[in-house]
């Protein structure tokens, strides 16, 4: 079983995610350059974090139009499990695979810290190993992580139970004070309506090794692995 990790100019979390996948799943990570036009046979597609194309125009907008994205869109639409982290989340919204978009943090600064997020939906293939409402600690590192969607879109997202993670504090409280970047309703991660595509701003791959003293990201990879077996 294989996981295709899409690599763009400016991707910088591709190796980290490969290490996490190797350590915590039964998948063999393979790197796929953005200029390829088809993804090799694989069980998971990953769009890693980074600053693709220097964040020119809008974060993720240029990458969303890279040659490989046609096949990513086709396969994800057909139901392929697809995970986008940070810039990967931005690319997924820019490509139309996920609703809404990500705008500049309302604090106007780049945020690089570990935050608490609450598992809002543990019924997805990415979150099954977490408990419902579990509070986990995962690092964020972004300048444009402020999730925005218009009212209709937001209603649809909520009605279809697409919110997977929300920013909170250590006690699980979700409010303005526990919102690091201004995201609507503290949204930190969502799936598409079908549930096979997850985008999230926090970096689970940075919470899977002893060096960071964080391990709460491990269950995300274990969830994927369990579901694919």
């Amino acid at each position: 079983m294989k996981a295709s990790i899409i690599v763009f100019p400016g991707s910088n979390c591709d190796r980290d995610i490969a290490v996490s996948i190797k350590k915590l799943t039964t998948l063999e990570p393979i790197m796929v350059w953005h200029k390829e036009t088809s993804i090799p046979d694989s069980d998971l597609i990953v769009i890693p974090g980074g600053f693709t194309f220097g964040d020119y125009l809008r974060c993720g907008s240029i990458a969303a139009n890279s040659p490989i994205m046609k096949d990513v869109i086709k396969k994800a639409t057909d139901g392929a499990p697809t995970l986008g982290i940070c810039n990967g989340f931005q690319i997924l919204t820019e490509s139309g695979l996920l609703p809404g978009t990500l705008i500049k943090n309302d604090c106007l600064s780049f945020l690089c810290k570990t935050v608490s997020i609450r598992v809002e939906n543990n019924q997805t293939n990415f979150s099954k190993k977490y408990k419902q409402n579990e509070i986990i600690n995962i690092p964020i590192a972004h300048n444009e992580g402020n999730f925005f969607a218009n009212e209709n879109t937001l209603e649809k997202i909520k009605d279809s139970n697409q919110i997977v993670f929300k920013y909170c504090n250590q006690n699980g409280e979700v409010n303005n004070e526990t919102n690091p970047n201004g995201s609507i309703e503290n949204i930190a991660g969502i799936t598409n309506e079908q549930g096979n595509v997850l985008g999230m701003m926090p970096h689970p791959e940075r919470a899977t090794c002893e060096i960071t003293k964080l391990s709460d990201g491990e269950n995300l990879f274990k969830s994927i692995s369990e579901f694919l077996l």
Binding site: L57, R58, S61, I62, N65, T101, I103, F148, N150, T153
Partner: peptide, 9 residues
């Protein structure tokens, strides 16, 4: 519509 503008925002 295809690239320059994100019509959501």
């Amino acid at each position: 519509k295809k690239l320059l503008v994100n019509l959501i925002i």
